[in-house]
Nucleic acid binder design. Structure first.
Lengths: 242, 242
DNA sequence: CGCCCTTAACTGAGATCACATATCGCACGC
DNA sequence: GCGTGCGATATGTGATCTCAGTTAAGGGCG
């Protein structure tokens, strides 16, 4: 006995929240696209209530935005906001890396190596799956951050990734990612090695290099709004029906 | 014309959210106290729906906590969490102060002086109002942070204050606050002066001193949970009826 | 006299209903 | 032919209802 299951201790609202969050982080919803609560509800096979809760929570985390019209959409990324978020990331994730280096254990270091190897393997494939790369990159970073054992900090960093996720992935799957991933691999390797020898400053430097390189690449792509148009009503309103 | 009014462009849910947020920040709800959505709704004169949205949003910001029983309460502050939040505050608010010093304008500096004077005046009264002191302290800090013109950063800092608010005020209104406020005044003055002469490092140092002093005081009070009991069911369940 | 079980009230979650508002299409009139 | 105004559609918001799970109290049994 006892091998039943953790009950259904999961609320529908929670599931909707996580699904939506995943969708945004993976960049499945392009910035500026408007969402319809009713459409989402019917697509997910529930009523509007859980969806409303999830949307409210995501809006509180700045992952979604409610326009004065009360329409909901993924907030378009401006260059200013992107640079601000990058500056905050450098601060917080840099700190997390330093603490993580100090608290690194052999087991966690081995796991980090494994994730890095997976990332490298996926990259070396003839047809790398963009989604897998995004996921492995996220796993790599967050495995380090979790090592710092600072749950509140981790939470904030997740919020930041949630905000930059859309453009980060939008970019990753569209442009020539070959060179970018190569640099990412280099920084990741340097980060692993620095963590292995307990070099907090070195680990931080590697992370800063990683974040800055990725950020520069995105900025150079010109995919971000200067500060003006902000409007692209996205003719097909609402989400895909079920 | 045009001086009409912004219509009633305010949703009930938004008002409930702000009210609840204010209540938590002001420490009106003691940590560990359980909240009843229905009770809150009847107290606020609305239905459960807007309250549920507000609670969901606050839970997303870690200002409220949903127990596995699905009961909602203000999360009790542990010593670990408090120290972690303080470390994050030092990072983010320290950064904000440095940027704000660089972007300080004469007008904003004057306003900062005025707020500091108000704070000092309230403190020098024979019977200082604890609530007013809390509000002025918050105004002082956030006027600086706003000067940095980093909206996302400001948002995160607000979230941090929301989490430490309860214990901060609980402490401020109970114990001998005389000495603590004196030190706060000193750090605030040093902060204003450093900002006035464009000394970013000095401003940061003053802020670090302020945060650390306040934190040490609270930690020394022993009002925080070591890590164990965490439970005080708070016999009177729910909130005060209307 | 004490422990445990039953029961009743309460709470949160989800669905459905009702209403105000925004969006878009279309016809009328200039 | 084109701009303006009206109306239909859809959407978000708030209220009400039902259901399942939890909690606490009261009564029965050991």
């Amino acid at each position: 006995m006892l091998g039943l299951e953790p009950i259904s201790r999961e609320t529908v609202g929670g599931r909707v929240y996580r699904d939506l969050r995943e969708l945004i982080m993976a960049g499945q919803i392009s910035p500026g696209e408007r969402l319809s609560i009713r459409a989402l509800a019917s697509a997910l096979g529930t009523s509007v209530m859980p969806v409303r809760d999830a949307v409210a929570k995501l809006a509180a985390e700045q992952a979604l935005e409610v326009l004065p019209n009360r329409a909901v959409r993924v907030p378009p990324m401006t260059q200013d906001r992107f640079e601000e978020l990058r500056a905050i990331r450098l601060l917080l994730e840099g700190h997390a890396v330093e603490i993580a280096t100090a608290r690194m254990t052999p087991a966690r270091l081995a796991r980090l190596h494994a994730i890095h190897a997976e990332f490298e393997a996926e990259h070396d494939r003839s047809e790398p799956d963009a989604g897998a790369l995004v996921r492995l990159n996220k796993d790599f970073h967050f495995h380090i951050y979790e090592t710092a054992e600072m749950p509140s900090l981790l939470r904030i960093i997740e919020g930041l990734w949630l905000q930059i996720g859309p453009v980060l992935n939008y970019d990753l799957r569209s442009k020539s990612r070959r060179t970018k991933d190569r640099t990412a691999l280099g920084f990741h390797l340097a980060l692993v090695q620095a963590a292995a020898r307990g070099d907090a400053a070195g680990a931080r430097a590697a992370l800063v290099g990683d974040i800055n390189a990725a950020g520069d690449f995105i900025l150079s792509c010109g995919a971000l709004l200067g500060a003006s148009p902000a409007e692209r009503p996205e003719r097909g309103r609402g989400a895909k029906r079920a």
